[in-house]
């Protein structure tokens, strides 16, 4: 079972859009896939038309009063299941903190699902937290969307530091560009320069495009309803990079 986390310290950079598309592409390939929405806002849950209602709340799952498998919901897409989030996920750090080894908890919770799924995608909320530490420990790959800005390099380094600080975790980091507006000079410059500075950053570009925003209306990944779009093609390249 391969665990892929979509993570960034910053909010609104395209984590959820990425998580949803990667999970869809994995399932389309025949891999049994689970997407875990870890964000109390439940953007991925909404996107897959699953009710944002977790019986017993996140606490019951984290404290093992209820097995994770019990809370799984099928999406509209064959082979792709979802662990929905609701507002109770906002207290995730408190729940984790009440366990013996919080930073190993997410990995421990996923373990019993290893025979059910080939791929697990984690959609993380932004910020540095106990949850993000636990996610990093559980992940084999961390996918990081980068929106070009003057601070891109610094933000990315901060993230690497955060990851390195957790000595035991050695996930592979895959950075790529998200919401790129080619009309902006700065965007063009960052996209051209950053991959040269940091080996973890790949020259893959998801452009800022209305088709990505439409996912909320279509209630489906772009890879499903607009597979020929540039965004969908980039997500497919990203998937082959991540799965390889």
């Amino acid at each position: 079972m391969k665990v892929i986390a979509c993570y960034a310290i910053k909010g609104g950079v395209g984590k959820t859009s990425t998580a949803v598309n990667l999970a869809y592409l994995a399932a389309a390939e025949g891999q049994r896939t689970l997407l875990w929405d870890l964000d109390p806002q439940g953007a991925a849950t909404f996107l897959f038309r699953v009710k944002p209602k977790v019986r017993g709340g996140a606490d019951a799952l984290v404290r093992r009063r209820r097995p994770l498998a019990d809370a799984v919901k099928a999406t509209d897409f064959e082979g792709l299941d979802l662990l929905p989030a609701d507002f109770s996920y906002r207290n995730m750090d408190l729940s984790l903190d009440a366990t013996k080894s919080p930073t190993r908890r997410i990995a421990a919770l996923l373990k019993p699902l290893a025979s059910d799924y080939d791929v697990v995608v984690l959609d993380c909320p932004p910020s540095v937290s106990l949850l993000s530490e636990s996610v990093v420990r559980a992940a084999d790959v961390i996918v990081v969307p980068i929106v070009p800005s003057a601070l891109s390099l610094r933000t990315f380094d901060q993230l690497l530091e955060h990851l390195i600080a957790q000595s035991k975790a050695k996930p592979r980091v895959v950075g790529f560009f998200s919401m790129v507006d080619r009309r902006k000079r700065q965007h063009r410059e960052v996209v051209a320069a950053l991959p040269g500075h940091r080996a973890q950053v790949h020259a893959l570009v998801v452009p800022a495009a209305t088709v990505v925003e439409q996912m909320g209306l279509e209630r489906a990944p772009v890879a499903a309803f607009a597979p020929k779009s540039e965004a969908a093609r980039t997500y497919a390249q990203l998937w082959s990079l991540v799965s390889g």
């Binding site: 389309a28 390939e29 897409f77 064959e78 597979p227 497919a236």
Partner: peptide, 9 residues
């Protein structure tokens, strides 16, 4: 993997 193939059962 072409992105337009349908999901597996």
């Amino acid at each position: 993997m072409p992105p337009d193939s349908s999901p597996a059962s």
